[in-house]
């Protein structure tokens, strides 16, 4: 706890500095912006598959299938699948970047220039992962609902869109955002930890990437289990 107060809490003050905000913006750009369409399309396919199964295989009515899709997407599938993809794509990238910086002496050089590592390198990456996880989850959830509506209602989907509040409740929306944020936060912290804890040896860099992804995936499922048990 003492360590938290001494190292991590003051790091939040670094957000008042322009170079830190720039690193945060770059992190959100590379993690969220570049993957937004991919998430939307995956979500679209997912929504279409789920309602087809529910309606065709399990005999649910169109309305019931869409309500189930909304509940499944916002409560479970969108945050879990999104952060799964973000973890594979960005956690490894963060770990490789930080590990290379450490091996090449860039981390040491920043410390010598009086630039704190937690404030300049860790905080914007962790926050960037968290913000990106929330934004990309929204993209996937939107794509999924749209896919489900188009497949189940065809060109009459506009009716379903207007009646969206029947399918998605505020509680589910809040749960979806909270889950995505917690998964992104855990992924960011573990990726930075894996990257900055490497020995000063180039062979450690791929190991850091692998460690970041494996630990991130493990944390993701443990956190999801906690959400299911304690919500």
């Amino acid at each position: 706890m003492k360590r938290w107060y001494r190292h991590y809490l003051p790091a939040f003050g670094a957000l008042s500095r322009a170079p830190v905000r720039r690193v945060l913006a770059k992190q959100v750009y590379f993690t969220a912006n570049e993957a937004a369409w991919l998430m939307f399309l995956i979500g679209f396919a997912l929504g279409a598959i789920v309602v087809t199964q529910l309606h065709g295989q399990y005999g649910q009515s169109r309305d019931a299938a869409l309500r189930l899709l909304g509940s499944l997407t916002f409560g479970e599938l969108a945050p879990l699948l999104t952060v799964l993809i973000v973890m594979a794509r960005s956690a490894s990238a963060i770990a490789i970047e930080l590990a290379s910086m450490r091996v090449n002496g860039e981390v040491r050089e920043l410390e010598r220039m009086g630039i704190p590592i937690h404030g300049y390198l860790v905080l914007p990456r962790v926050l960037g992962m968290m913000i990106s996880a929330v934004l990309l989850t929204a993209c996937m959830a939107l794509g999924s609902m749209l896919g489900g509506m188009l497949v189940i209602s065809g060109w009459d989907a506009s009716y379903q869109v207007l009646a969206l509040e029947r399918i998605v409740r505020f509680g589910e929306l809040a749960l979806c955002v909270a889950k995505a944020a917690s998964f992104g936060l855990a992924g960011g912290i573990l990726a930075c930890h894996a990257g900055l804890r490497v020995q000063l040896n180039a062979t450690e860099i791929p190991r850091a990437a692998s460690r970041a992804v494996m630990r991130g995936l493990f944390a993701l499922f443990v956190l999801d289990l906690c959400w299911v048990v304690f919500k």
Partner: peptide, 22 residues
């Protein structure tokens, strides 16, 4: 001399001053 590899040279030159003086 060591520089931050993902920043341009100009960004590296101004980084410490930009960070501390704002």
């Amino acid at each position: 001399p060591v520089f931050v590899s993902n920043l341009r040279v100009w960004e590296n030159i101004i980084l410490p001053t930009w960070y501390h003086a704002g």
